[in-house]
């Protein structure tokens, strides 16, 4: 049990959730819920890992992961935007499709050692006492990219013209349409962006934070946690980042809790107690289920500030939205 280690590891694993959740925020802000995050992440993790292995270049792997997640998300876009099908059903199917594809194509990757995204320490910043060693020392480059992502995406969504259009399309697509904004194009674009970021999140696992290919255990449900974080974060990227980091730290804390035989001078109840430690490892997912059930109530979503047109296909000329 070491606070510095928990915080440091939390930032690293939190980066995975940060990318996936911000991606989902983009899609949902445009009015399209994509429950296929888990599938897109796993496919991204597999694509990144195998490309890096084949080309011996981790950066090419990263690009391939982003690409794979984005391409898979377009299937969801086609079904929900073009054919106006139910977003929940399509999203769930996308998880199955992505997971299935990743497991088949990832056959035999376990145990391989491709080049990884390097860890670096930032000069000067790393020498700040405590904070430097938590935030700026021996982190994957992707963690630093994540730091930059937070203010940039926030600024983009709230303070730029395309961000304004994005929010308008998710809140009131008919208004956007009458002002000459192409609702379908905007939705496709942000579903694709969401897919790309889910792919990036996948590669952040397999090529950087916990490198390797462990079939479906690679993502182990983190895509669902990301979807829950979006609700907790009220579709705000800054809150999503904080949520992602907190979840990351929670997981590390639970892991570390199982280690020592003595805790603050007392017998550690979790030490060597499998039932209890499995239960503890489950808690983040329990929270996720609670968040998803809680957040799926229409009234609750409204109170949290969910985009008003979220989940509703846009058909020109239909009254209401």
């Amino acid at each position: 049990m070491n606070l510095e280690i928990i915080l440091h590891a939390g930032l690293a694993t939190g980066t995975i959730l940060l990318f996936a959740a911000i991606g989902e925020i983009f899609a949902e802000r445009a009015g399209v819920m994509n429950l296929g995050v888990e599938g897109m992440m796993l496919l991204g993790a597999m694509a990144g890992f195998s490309t890096s292995l084949a080309t011996q270049n981790a950066w090419l792997g990263l690009i391939m992961a982003i690409f794979a997640g984005g391409i898979l998300s377009l299937a969801h876009g086609l079904v929900t935007i073009h054919f106006q099908a139910d977003q929940v059903v399509s999203g769930l199917s996308l998880t199955f499709l992505g997971t299935g594809l990743a497991l088949v194509l990832g056959e035999g990757l376990t145990g391989q050692n491709p080049p990884l995204i390097p860890n670096v320490s930032l000069p000067i910043l790393a020498s700040i006492p405590f904070l430097g060693s938590v935030f700026f020392t021996n982190h994957s480059i992707l963690v630093y990219v994540g730091y930059l992502f937070i203010p940039l995406t926030w600024y983009y969504i709230y303070k730029t013209r395309p961000g304004m259009h994005l929010r308008a399309v998710g809140e009131k697509p008919s208004a956007a349409d009458t002002l000459g904004i192409n609702v379908y194009r905007v939705r496709y674009f942000y579903v694709f962006v969401g897919g790309c970021l889910a792919g990036l999140a996948g590669a952040t696992i397999s090529l950087s934070v916990s490198p390797g290919w462990y079939s479906s255990q690679t993502t182990s449900g983190q895509g669902w946690i990301a979807v829950a974080i979006v609700i907790f974060a009220q579709w705000n990227p800054v809150r999503a980042a904080v949520g992602g980091y907190l979840f990351g730290m929670l997981r590390r804390f639970i892991l570390d809790l199982q280690g020592p035989a003595l805790l603050f001078g007392f017998q550690n109840p979790i030490f060597m107690n499998h039932n209890l430690s499995f239960f503890l490892q489950m808690t983040p997912f329990l929270l996720t289920i609670v968040a998803l059930v809680w957040g799926s109530q229409a009234a609750m979503r409204k109170r949290l500030g969910s985009p008003a047109a979220l989940g509703i296909p846009y058909i020109r000329g239909e009254r209401g939205l």
Partner: peptide
Amino acid sequence: VYQHFMLVPTQ
């Protein structure tokens, strides 16, 4: 100006 206003309530 449409009968059902074409305005984004949160903006």
